[in-house]
């Protein structure tokens, strides 16, 4: 399979034409996702796909869904949210206002997890949540806050394991196989287009949660992203990563202390 050069060209073209930068993403995942997109769009080669997306922005929008598809859960890795609730929240409680950045929010599962948790802890009213992603369709889905009802059993179990104090079902309404999250949960949420590969810091925040995003980034891009988090965080601000992500080997490792190493919470110097 020597279509590596074709794939490279497709990724370069996407960047120059549409300013989406997948050039420093892990090749294995990008290849797999591009193949899925290629099949869905009826192309036979990466070159054919490149030609199509150059001519047809709508086809690119479709391809983007394949390139960025992520499936997370509410309260995925309950221990992460338990650590946030038990160890980070007591610190946040001493602040008059809180800004939390969920970087790479995909379809919003983590946004609603934090919103529910902060509501339960009585902090949601004074918290601003920035939910960012590169995919506008994912942001729309996140803003809608609608998930398959089938998934709620797993979400509920995660919520309980994370130390949830109320029933998760009190935060959504079931409707024709869907669970629609209460709009009051997102009254302080700003959903916004932001790329860790190309954009800059947009606000000072006290907490950054960026999970299962760095696993796709080559080292150089990881360093860029963690550098943004460092710049965005206020002194002693908190950074949370995915269960299989770490600041070990990062250029910015020295800029953070491990706060809860097991659950991947760090604190900025």
């Amino acid at each position: 399979m020597d279509d590596d050069i074709e794939l490279r060209r497709l990724i370069d073209t996407i960047y120059s034409r549409y300013h989406y930068d997948f050039r420093r993403y892990s090749s294995a995942s990008v290849r797999r996702r591009a193949v899925q997109g290629m099949i869905a769009l009826g192309c036979k080669t990466f070159s054919g796909l490149e030609e199509l997306v150059v001519q047809d922005p709508a086809a690119f929008t479709q391809l983007l869904q394949y390139l960025t598809v992520q499936v997370s859960d509410l309260f995925r890795d309950p221990g992460y949210f338990r650590a946030f609730r038990e160890r980070v929240v007591p610190v946040l409680r001493t602040y008059p206002s809180i800004k939390l950045w969920v970087a790479g929010c995909a379809n919003g599962e983590e946004v609603y997890s934090f919103a529910v948790l902060l509501l339960e802890e009585g902090l949601l009213d004074r918290t601003m949540i920035y939910a960012t992603d590169i995919n506008p369709s994912a942001l729309q889905a996140a803003e809608a806050g609608i998930y398959l009802l089938d998934r709620m059993r797993a979400f509920t179990a995660n919520h309980q394991a994370s130390g949830g104090t109320c029933s998760l079902s009190s935060y959504y309404t079931a409707n024709y196989g869907s669970a629609v999250f209460d709009r009051t949960l997102r009254k302080n949420v700003v959903f916004s287009d932001h790329s860790l590969a190309t954009d800059a810091v947009f606000s000072e925040v006290q907490v950054v949660s960026c999970r299962n995003v760095l696993i796709y980034f080559e080292r150089e891009l990881q360093d860029r992203a963690v550098g943004l988090f460092h710049d965005a965080l206020s002194l002693r601000g908190f950074l949370g990563l995915g269960a299989k992500e770490t600041l070990r080997f990062s250029r910015h490792e020295m800029g953070f202390d491990a706060f809860d190493a097991e659950e991947r919470w760090y604190r900025r110097h």
């Binding site: 590596d4 892990s26 996702r33 796709y216």
Partner: peptide
């Protein structure tokens, strides 16, 4: 778990 062209591990949370 995936393998990259240059023979490294890669993790992903794309759909099951």
């Amino acid at each position: 778990l995936l393998v990259t062209r240059d023979r490294r591990c890669a993790l992903s949370i794309e759909p099951p």
